[in-house]
Simulated scan of single mutants.
Amino acid sequence: MSSDGDGARTGDGAFRLDAYLPYRLSVASNAVSGLIARAYQDRFGLTVPQWRLICVLAEDGGLTQGQLVTRTMMDKVTVSRSAQGLLKRHLVGRSDHQADGRSHVLALTADGAGLHAEIAPLALAYESALIAGLAPDDVTLLKRLLARLQSAAGQLAGDADPPR
C-alpha cells in the first residue's frame, strides 16, 4: 500500500487496487453487510435492504417508496422488491397518499414494529463488536469522515466531468 497521501498510486505512479479508497470502502462494506445479512436472514428471514426499510420506517414513520429511495440511497428496484417482501409478511402496510393519488405510503405494522424492537439490540451488538478494537474518538472520527466522503460523492455525482 502507498504510504503517502496519494492513495492508490505506488512510488512509480502505478495504480494499486488494494490502496484505492473506493475499493477498500466497498470491500469493508461488503464484509460487514455480509456478516449482518447472514444473521438477519438466518434468524429473521430478512434481507439487508428489508432491514434498512424497517429501520427507516421505525425512525421516520410512513414514507412513500420515492422517499425511501432517497432516505436509504438504494435504487428503486431494490426498494420496491424489499417493500413487496415486507408487505407479503405483513411487516409493513400500504395506504393511499393524501396529497398524491398515484403514490402510496408505507408504514410499519405492529408486527413490523415488534420485529424492529427485537432486531435493534442485535444490530447494536454487532456494531459494538465491530468497533470494539477502536477508541471512541476513532469511532467519532470514522463516522465524521464517512459523512464527508458521502457528501463529496454526492457533489461529484452532480458534476458531469470527473475530477482531474
Rank of each mutant, 00 (worst) to 15 (best):
T140S: 08
T140P: 02
A99Y: 14
A129K: 06
K143P: 05
A37T: 11
V92W: 00
A14P: 00
P121D: 09
Q67K: 15
I54M: 06
Y126D: 05
L21D: 09
S29F: 14
T72P: 00
A58L: 05
L115Q: 01
E118V: 04
A123T: 09
G154F: 04
G158P: 08
G13R: 02
L68K: 00
G11P: 03
A99D: 15
G85L: 06
G45L: 02
M74T: 06
G5V: 00
E59Y: 08
V92R: 00
A160I: 12
R16W: 06
V56N: 00
S2L: 02
A28F: 05
A99E: 15
L86E: 01
G133N: 04
L63T: 01
A14C: 07
P22H: 03
S82G: 13
L53F: 03
V48F: 13
R94F: 06
E127T: 10
R9G: 05
G101T: 10
S26K: 12
L25Q: 11
V105F: 05
G158T: 11
A39P: 07
D161S: 12
A14F: 10
S151K: 07
D75I: 13
L86K: 00
K88Q: 15
I36P: 03
D137T: 10
Q50L: 02
G85C: 12
P162K: 09
L63C: 04
F44E: 05
G154T: 07
H97S: 12
A129H: 07
W51I: 11
S128H: 12
I54K: 00
P162E: 07
M73A: 15
L86D: 00
R89Q: 14
S3H: 11
L35P: 04
L124Q: 03
L35M: 09
R52I: 10
M74V: 12
A39E: 12
L63E: 02
T109Y: 02
R81F: 14
A152T: 14
A83R: 00
P163R: 14
A58F: 03
K143L: 13
D138S: 11
G13L: 03
V32P: 01
D161G: 14
L141K: 13
L156I: 07
R24A: 10
S3W: 06
R148A: 14
T70Q: 15
G66L: 12
G61E: 12
G7N: 00
G93T: 09
R89P: 01
P162G: 03
P49A: 04
G101D: 09
A8C: 05
P162Q: 08
Q41Y: 11
V79M: 02
S80E: 13
S82T: 10
R144Q: 10
M1Y: 05
S151D: 15
A8M: 04
D12H: 10
G154Q: 03
T72M: 10
K76F: 06
V139F: 07
G85Y: 02
M73H: 15
E127K: 02
L25V: 11
A125Q: 09
Q41M: 14
K76G: 13
V105Y: 01
